[in-house]
Lab assay of single mutants.
Amino acid sequence: DVEPGKFYKGVVTRIEKYGAFINLNEQVRGLLRPRDMISLRAENLNVGDEIIVQAIDVRPEKREIDFKYIP
């Protein structure tokens, strides 16, 4: 289970104008929005990159997770 405030290692699987999709594993995926990329620009991300993200909002009923990148 993903808990708000905890840090996780994930892999960038898709990049859109509104953010990057980060997979923690095959069943868990969330969104890293540009406003939550402190000191990281979306254009510096590539599909396949491994990054550490913090879960900031977890909505299990919608199967949605928002992440924040903190260097």
Rank of each mutant, 00 (worst) to 15 (best):
I51A: 00
Y8K: 00
D36C: 12
V11P: 00
N25P: 03
I51K: 00
I56N: 02
L32S: 02
P4L: 14
I15Y: 01
P71Q: 10
V58R: 04
D66Q: 09
D1V: 13
A20V: 15
L24E: 01
I15G: 00
K17N: 09
G19Y: 10
L31E: 02
E16H: 10
F7G: 01
N23I: 10
K68Y: 07
T13H: 04
I15N: 01
V47I: 13
P4V: 15
G48V: 01
S39Q: 13
I22S: 00
N44D: 15
K17A: 12
R33F: 05
R59I: 04
V11L: 08
E26L: 11
D57R: 15
G10M: 05
N44L: 13
D66S: 11
R33M: 06
Q27V: 13
D36G: 07
D57S: 15
A20S: 04
T13R: 04
L24M: 03
E3V: 15
P60A: 10
E26V: 12
E16F: 13
V2F: 10
L45I: 12
Y8N: 00
K6R: 12
Y18D: 06
D49S: 05
V53I: 07
T13I: 08
V11A: 01
L45A: 01
E50M: 14
E16L: 11
A20I: 15
G10R: 00
V12P: 00
S39L: 14
I52A: 02
F7E: 02
P4Y: 07
Q27P: 04
V58G: 04
V28R: 03
Y18F: 12
V28K: 02
G5L: 07
L32V: 05
Y18N: 06
G48Y: 02
V47H: 02
A42L: 15
E43M: 13
G10L: 06
R14T: 05
E50F: 15
K17C: 10
Y18G: 06
L24I: 14
A55V: 15
K62T: 11
N25L: 07
F7P: 01
E16K: 08
D66H: 11
Q54D: 01
E43Q: 11
L32K: 02
E26P: 14
Y8P: 00
I70F: 11
G48M: 02
E43P: 08
I15V: 10
L32C: 07
N46A: 14
L31V: 06
V12W: 01
Y18R: 07
D57Q: 14
L32P: 02
I65Y: 09
E3W: 10
T13K: 04
A42P: 15
R63H: 12
K9R: 13
P4S: 09
F21R: 02
F21N: 01
L31R: 06
V11C: 08
E43S: 13
L45R: 02
L45N: 00
E16C: 13
I38T: 11
L40T: 07
R33W: 06
L31K: 05
V11D: 00
K6Y: 07
L31D: 01
F7D: 01
E26G: 13
P60K: 10
I22R: 00
K9T: 08
D57A: 15
V58P: 04
K62D: 07
K9E: 03
F67M: 04
V53R: 00
E64T: 08
P60N: 08
R29G: 13
P34H: 14
R41G: 12
M37N: 06
F67R: 02
Q27W: 15
L31W: 06
G19H: 07
E3R: 13
G19E: 05
R35Y: 07
G5Y: 07
K17I: 12
V11R: 10
P71L: 09
D49H: 04
R35M: 08
I15T: 02
F21S: 03
I56F: 08
I52G: 00
D36R: 06
V2D: 03
S39F: 15
G48F: 02
F67N: 03
Y69S: 03
I65P: 04
P4W: 07
R59L: 04
L40E: 04
I51L: 09
M37T: 05
I52N: 02
R14Y: 05
R41Y: 09
E64N: 07
V2E: 02
K68M: 11
R29Q: 14
P60I: 10
E50L: 14
E26Q: 13
V47F: 02
N25V: 07
I56V: 10
K6F: 08
Q54G: 02
R63L: 10
P60M: 10
I56H: 05
R63T: 07
G30Q: 03
K6H: 10
D57L: 11
A20W: 12
P34E: 11
V53W: 02
Q27S: 13
E64K: 07
F21K: 01
I56M: 12
L31I: 09
F67D: 03
A42E: 07
G19D: 02
R35F: 06
V11Q: 04
E50C: 15
A42V: 15
N23G: 06
P60L: 09
R63S: 11
E43H: 14
Q27K: 14
V58E: 02
E61M: 08
F21T: 07
